[in-house]
Design a binder for these strands. Sequence first.
DNA 1: CCAATAGTGTCTATCAGACAGTATCGA
DNA 2: TCGATACTGTCTGATAGACACTATTGG
Lengths: 238, 238
Amino acid sequence: MTNGGYDPHTFPPFAVTADIVLLTIDVSLSVLLVKRGAEPFAGSLALPGGFVLPDESVADTARRELMEETGIAESDLDGVHLEQLATFSEPDRDPRMRVVSTAYLALSPTKPQPTAGTDAAAAHWVSVDDALAGQLAFDHAEILAVGVERARAKLEYTTLATNLAGPEFTLGELQHVYEVTWGCGLERANFRRKVLATQGFVAKTQDRRVGEAGGAPAVVYRAGGGELLVPPMMRPRK
Amino acid sequence: MTNGGYDPHTFPPFAVTADIVLLTIDVSLSVLLVKRGAEPFAGSLALPGGFVLPDESVADTARRELMEETGIAESDLDGVHLEQLATFSEPDRDPRMRVVSTAYLALSPTKPQPTAGTDAAAAHWVSVDDALAGQLAFDHAEILAVGVERARAKLEYTTLATNLAGPEFTLGELQHVYEVTWGCGLERANFRRKVLATQGFVAKTQDRRVGEAGGAPAVVYRAGGGELLVPPMMRPRK
DNA sequence: CCAATAGTGTCTATCAGACAGTATCGA
DNA sequence: TCGATACTGTCTGATAGACACTATTGG
């Protein structure tokens, strides 16, 4: 690189945006999408996102868009995991101009309902399978695929599932997070053994809870403070 | 996000760069750094990198800079692993103007000598420990730390070490890659068993080779084509 | 011979997969 | 009572850690 490039008038102009893959657990793994109003891709579904402002880091933008487009209150934001995914920069990814987008992965234990009267009015929850099968705007299908794979991988070697299960959860609910995210069933007894044997994964509370479909009351747990799972929770192969 | 932001004259202007963490194995884990000639941080060491050109993706820029600043020939580039690390975007990370940098991790089996007469003339190999202890320009110490941790983590669950060991290597050399990257010793017999038992990790060749310090001739291996290591190679904890 | 490296074999503790069996709830 | 879920226990095969042993080179 030659240093002449540093003259503010000679570097090529870029717009920088943050796009958000916000996932939550439902009957299936679901993602928040917004319906686009303007061309290009008017009427298509897209990931929520927006421009990085002059005094923001991209992470700041991601947090701001998460609030603006989902109606998540700032006070609820600490329950939402947010991490950088990857940056997408193909020159033709936006037909209008040069836009570089840094994607963020957000994991919410609840399914915040988009509030009317805000940007979030155009937001809808869609199952990840449907979203990937349909036609997302720009390269958002690729971004979503990267986000989903990141989430699946991170359940293996981190305690992140506790974020998706909510502040309080039973072991059955925690297992449900794994099964929905990975799309496969797990052996109950072995899952329990692994979770309880791993230091810092979950912490018992005094409460018990009865599920919707009856059954014996289950002990309620909280996140145990730990971050890593060593050795990892093995995802069934094949 | 409001769509008025798409007017090319209203979005804030950003410069986008690619910075490269090029690592190789020596007596210790080493990184390629360049001495800066211009302010700010004139005379300081920095990661090689440069601006993204109008018709390039950031990955294109990373490949180009890798050639320009290290003298790696385009034909040797396929032996070099290159992957995106993360994007750094704090508003004040460059005192002159707003610069967003996407960092890339590159792993080279050899230690290409910077060639005179090119940008690479200012390039030097520095041990990672020394680089992190010293004062790198901008936020490059943070970027380097992220790159090193990524490399260490990826040796656990991918076959990436074969890239750092070179096109052909003995099991002793492959173990050396792990030990230098992780900064700890490994049991020889267990390491061999793990590597040889993992499908697609390494492939035997007909050659044998005698090391510098004597000893019995060792079988020479090549990369085995596989990418993932399941279950992973466990890094000793504590 | 010695130092150094390559390669093999084995014992043991740990852990994941599989599955049986008991306990406790709502209907 | 039945269906459903919570929880416990146990057997087995796979694997990692630790370590002993032999083999082959250069000096």
